[in-house]
Amino acid sequence: MKDYTLSDAHLVNDYIKGDEGALSILIERHKQRIYSFIYSKVFDRDVSEDIFQDTFIKVIRTLKNGKYNEEGKFLPWVMRIAHNLVIDHFRKGNRMPKFEDNGEFSIFSVISDGDLNAEKKLIKSQVEEDLRNLIQELPEDQKEVLVMRMYRDMSFKEISDKTGVSINTALGRMRYALINLRKVIEKNNIVLTN
């Protein structure tokens, strides 16, 4: 059982010599003060946890590297590290302003991630597959016009040149193709939504 009445300087020395238990006592002894100090500056539990963790990572690395030379002043030294990390946190915050959701207005209600997630990608590919199958059911002349217009992005002028029919006929075929597609979709209760 470790002696909990040992001074900080003694524990730091023990820790440098390889006694891991000494660090545990140091953290237990000072965690409340250091954490409260950080929280009093940032007012955010998660950020406080992060800064507390980074503070002690710095402490551990410094001690293990043998760079610690402030014997007897362990807590002020740790507090200074925490203070510097809090400043770093706010500097970072100034470079990248944080939008806080305070219930009144959320920036995320007006901006969204335009990319489709995995589920939506899957639904999209299924919808497209269903639509391709439906198009195959259309009469040949209508299917030809629809494919040229929608998949090959051709103008009705180009379609009329290619198929040898007038532009009006091509437009009419496109119109009937869409009407027929809608009819088939309604008749079979096919859901084509993403």
Binding site: E20, L23, S24, I27, E28, K31, Q32, Y35, S36, Y39, S48, E49, F52, Q53, F56, I57, I60, R61, K64
Partner: peptide, 18 residues
């Protein structure tokens, strides 16, 4: 106002591993 136990455990494990 104390850090989570998981944070403290992480630090102790980090120290042992380093």
């Amino acid at each position: 106002l104390v850090p989570k136990q998981s944070t403290v455990d992480f630090l102790l494990n980090y120290s042992k591993a380093l």
